[in-house]
Amino acid sequence: MTEGKVSAEALLILVSLAEGPKHGYAIQQDIEEVSGRRLGPGSLYGAIARLETARYIESLADEGPRRPYRLTPAGSRALSVELDALKKVTAAGKRRLATR
C-alpha cells in the first residue's frame, strides 16, 4: 500500500479500530454492524496485512489467535485524510444529485 491510498476494506478496518483495539473477529463483527458488509477472512486479513505493513495498525502483545490490533498515529492521520476525501466526494455527489 502506498501512502495515502487505502482500499475500501482497509478503510472499514481503520474506522473499526478508531473505536479501540480489536481482534479479527471483533473487527469483522463491527464492520458488519457499521457498514452492513461482511468481510470474509481472506479479504479481512489481506487488508490487515497491508495496513500492518504500512504501519497504520499494529498488533498488541502476542495473544495467539485473539491478537488485538490498534490504530497507530500514522493510521489515525491516514484515516482522517481518507474521511476528508470521502466527505468531499459525498458532498459533490449530493450536490450533483440535487441539481438534476
Binding site: H23, G24, Y25, Q28, G40, P41, G42, S43, L44, Y45, G46, G64, P65, R66, R67
Partner: peptide
Amino acid sequence: EEIAALLGEERLSLSLVVDLILGA
C-alpha cells in the same frame, strides 16, 4: 491461527471458498 479462529468450525460455502482462494 487468527484466520482459523475466525473460521471456527464454519462449513464451506461458495463465497467463503472464493474469499480464501483469492486471499491465498
